[in-house]
Write a protein that binds this DNA or RNA. Structure first.
Lengths: 148, 148
DNA sequence: TCCGGGTTGTTTAATATTAAACAAATGGCG
DNA sequence: CGCCATTTGTTTAATATTAAACAACCCGGA
């Protein structure tokens, strides 16, 4: 057994919060992903569909910023969504570099059908928390990582 | 603009907490990963090294449970750590299916050098929270996802 | 003793993801 | 106008990840 690094109280508390945060989000993410895969959809694909549904048409750069994935990845996720007929690429007449990604009827139908199911799965994941705890958790998470 | 699903108050609060939780953990994870890549190490590799350092030798199944990754993935992560000389596989005389993964001197040296740096990066990420908030966050995250 | 179900790890095939190099387009400034 | 830095998206090469099929092994009960 190695001798371990002894941190300050602040370091110990931070590490504990970090580990618990990561573990919670990874567990939830893994379980939700498994359920999504029953619909043959990935987390990233769902994130794109949701952004388009709730926020309307956007270009790929904006979508990438929303789901925190690289530009190259977005190209592939969109390609796969196009293959399934859920979204389409349109030329942007005002900027020929950019494209406009929008939901197809098919995509809209899918998200309208699946979003309530997904939301239900999420509600189940958080069922151990009271409403007040939910708010506290949201507020704390919002504060985290704001340091520059 | 599509008409949107109107949820109950509980659903709205849950969704908000979920989004903030995911966003916080993904942002932190992305930033930490980028720093780790300067040391040519991945998050999973670091997770394994840390588990071995703090908890001692383990077999691959146990390591997989710790970092929440699939068995097949663990095989590859360990392979890569072996290539770098940070860990080694030993036969378990008591169970010939299992292997014992342990840190090499090299691996121990690395984790002892890099862990404080990593911890410092984490502390920076959480610097916007008071110590009390850290504890609250940890406690709430621990409660989440416990539903079955 | 032997069989069968469960455990541990590996392999395979398919996808996901990233960084880096690249191409095309924009926009500002000389 | 013409150039150059920036922006947007794609491609490429490398790695990560998973589920599923597989092989070797363990163990308990018939």
């Amino acid at each position: 057994m190695p001798t371990h690094y002894k941190g300050t109280q602040r370091e110990v508390d931070t590490l504990n919060a970090f580990i618990k945060l990561m573990r919670a989000s990874n567990s939830i993410s893994n379980r939700l992903s498994r359920k999504m895969s029953e619909e043959n959809i990935t987390e990233s694909q769902f994130g794109i569909l949701e952004a388009l549904y709730h926020l309307g048409c956007q270009n790929q750069r904006e979508l990438g910023a929303k789901i925190l994935k690289s530009g190259g990845n977005i190209t592939m996720v969109i390609d796969n969504l196009i293959k399934r007929g859920y979204v389409e690429r349109k030329q942007n007449p005002e900027d020929r570099r950019a494209v406009i990604i929008s939901l197809t009827k098919e995509g809209e139908k899918f998200i309208e059908k699946y979003f309530p199911v997904h939301l239900n799965n999420i509600v189940h994941e958080f069922s151990a928390l009271t409403s007040e705890e939910l708010e506290t958790l949201a507020a704390l998470c919002k504060k985290v990582g704001k340091a520059e």
